[in-house]
Amino acid sequence: MTDRARDRRGREREGTTMTVTTASPLSTGYAMTESPRWHEGRLWFVDMHRRQVVAVDQAGRAEVIVDVPGQVGGLGWLPDGRLLVVAQDLRQILRLEPSGRLVVHADLSGTVPTLLNDMWVDAAGRAYVGEMGFDAHEWFDANSDVAASWFAGDVSVLDVPAKSRLFVVEPDGSWRVGADDLVFSNGIVVDEEKRTLIVAETFGARLSVFGLDADGSPRRRDLWPLGFYPDGIGLDGRGAVWVTDPVRKQARRIEYGGAETGRVTTDQTCIGCAVGGEDGQTLFLCTSPTTEPEQALARLGSRIDTASVAGIA
């Protein structure tokens, strides 16, 4: 990105009217909610440490869809309706068959040394999945100065021990590397109308925005500095990107071009987000009191929170 583009986006942020609202709980009692997707009238998400895919309606009625072997990450659907879900530590994408049996859809265990992370499946059934590249918990434990800077909100592009890649997985399960040099790839969405792929780079404090070729290959990478460390992301019906800010316990609405127009706050760490609901104007947030696996399983304090974003332009 050029200095001129950065200056323009800075002026846009300064001149933008900010709308702030507060989320309220919808569904509780989980270890760590993640990767929310609005699908067929319900919010689908994963309980990462209990290794489950769950769906909840807007009345708060929850259903466990499937138990997943291994730690569970992103999810999406093939055009025929079959569910795809990331088994992070197995480094595989699994597919839920009509029989209720999970089978291997794509196996990346031979190339991914750590964990797979979030995933987005586009309308053609092509999946985009990222890898972590390194263990962030271990890195924080070994680098107390980095951890202190993170929690203090001192934002910079961090010098991570390894970069991560983004993989493009075709509907038949074949895959290829679509992008690399990512500073901890995390939340992923595809804007079908704009034919763009958006990736949150958590320790890069930015979004990477790619154009997509006809075969789904990412190209023309544009960097959007955020001024905070992003985690999950989601699109709203007006083409803006909601980005979670876990350090400040909120989600922020970022328009194309970088202007921030709204925030939704929570009382817990805000990890993932999706826009949906019957009116398409509800922001669903995955929130947790802790991201440490053992503590999360002991407390079961993770939730799905919601807020109306109808008035946030």
Rank of each mutant, 00 (worst) to 15 (best):
F140L: 15
D141G: 11
A142Y: 02
N143M: 06
N143R: 15
S144K: 15
D145C: 04
V146W: 01
V146Y: 04
V146S: 03
S149F: 00
W150E: 08
W150K: 09
F151M: 12
D154S: 13
S156E: 15
D159C: 04
D159P: 09
A162Q: 15
A162P: 09
K163L: 15
K163E: 14
R165Q: 05
L166T: 07
G173E: 11
S174W: 04
S174Y: 01
V177E: 15
A179W: 00
D180N: 10
D181I: 03
D181F: 04
S185H: 05
N186W: 02
V189D: 03
V190N: 00
E192R: 14
K194F: 00
R195Q: 15
L197E: 06
V199S: 02
A200R: 08
F203D: 00
A205I: 02
R206T: 04
L207P: 07
L207N: 09
S208D: 12
S208E: 07
L212C: 05
L212P: 04
D213N: 14
D213P: 04
D213K: 13
G216F: 05
G216P: 10
L223H: 12
P225V: 03
L226H: 12
L226I: 11
D231Q: 11
L235Y: 05
L235M: 10
L235S: 05
L235I: 07
D236T: 02
D236K: 04
G237D: 09
R238D: 08
V241W: 01
V241F: 03
V243P: 07
V243C: 12
T244Q: 08
D245A: 10
P246W: 08
R248T: 06
R248F: 05
K249P: 00
K249F: 06
Q250H: 07
R252M: 12
I254Y: 13
E255F: 01
E255R: 15
Y256S: 09
G257P: 14
G258M: 00
G262E: 00
R263F: 11
V264D: 00
